[in-house]
Amino acid sequence: MRFDFIVIGGGIVGLSAAAALSARGKTLLLERESQPCQHSSGRSAAIFVHSYGNEVVQALTAISARVFAAADHEMLGRKRGILVVARKGGDPGGPVPGRERISAEAAAALMPLLRPEMLSHAWLETDARDIDVHAMHMAYARTLKANAGTLLTDFDVRSAEWQGGLWHVSNGAQSMSAPVVINAAGAWAETVGALFGAAPKGIQPLRRSAALIDPPADSNLEDWPMVVDVEESVYFKPEAGKLMVSPADRTPSPPCDSWAEDMDIAIAIDRYQSLTGEEVRRVTHTWAGLRSFVDDESPLIGADAAVPGLFWLAALGGYGVQTAPAAGAIMAALASGTALPEGVTPELLRALDPARIT
Rank of each mutant, 00 (worst) to 15 (best):
F3H: 09
F5Q: 02
V7E: 08
G9F: 03
V13T: 06
L15V: 08
S16E: 06
L21G: 11
L21D: 07
L21T: 07
L28H: 07
L30M: 12
E33G: 01
H39I: 01
S40Q: 10
G42E: 05
I47P: 02
V49R: 13
H50M: 12
E55S: 15
L60D: 09
A62Q: 14
I63R: 04
L76A: 09
K79T: 14
I82P: 02
V84I: 14
V84E: 14
A86Y: 09
K88Q: 00
K88S: 00
P92V: 06
V96C: 15
G98S: 07
G98I: 11
G98P: 05
R99M: 11
R99K: 11
E100G: 00
S103M: 00
A104E: 03
E105G: 06
A108D: 07
P112T: 14
R115A: 00
A122W: 04
W123Q: 11
E125H: 05
V133Q: 13
H134V: 00
A139N: 07
Y140F: 13
R142S: 10
K145P: 10
N147C: 09
T150C: 13
V157R: 11
S159W: 02
Q163A: 13
L166A: 14
V169P: 11
V169T: 07
S170P: 04
Q174W: 08
Q174Y: 11
A178M: 12
P179R: 04
V181F: 07
V181C: 12
N183R: 10
N183S: 08
A187V: 03
A187F: 06
A189S: 15
A189P: 02
T191H: 07
G193T: 10
G193Y: 05
A194R: 12
A194N: 09
A199T: 15
A199N: 13
A199M: 13
P200A: 15
K201Y: 04
K201D: 10
G202M: 05
G202D: 10
I203L: 14
L206M: 15
A210E: 00
D214M: 06
P216R: 03
A217H: 13
D218W: 04
E222N: 14
E222G: 14
D223W: 08
D223N: 15
W224P: 13
V227W: 03
D229E: 10
D229K: 07
V230M: 10
V230E: 12
V234A: 04
F236M: 02
M244R: 12
S246G: 02
P247W: 01
A248E: 13
P255Q: 07
C256K: 11
D257W: 01
W259I: 12
W259V: 13
A260E: 04
Y272N: 01
G277Q: 01
E278W: 08
V280C: 08
A288F: 05
S292E: 03
D295F: 11
D295P: 06
A305K: 07
W312G: 03
A314E: 09
T323C: 15
A326W: 01
G328E: 01
G328M: 03
G328T: 03
I330S: 12
M331D: 03
A333G: 10
L334S: 07
S336F: 11
G337Y: 08
T338S: 15
T338V: 15
P341D: 02
E342K: 14
R350K: 15
T358Y: 10
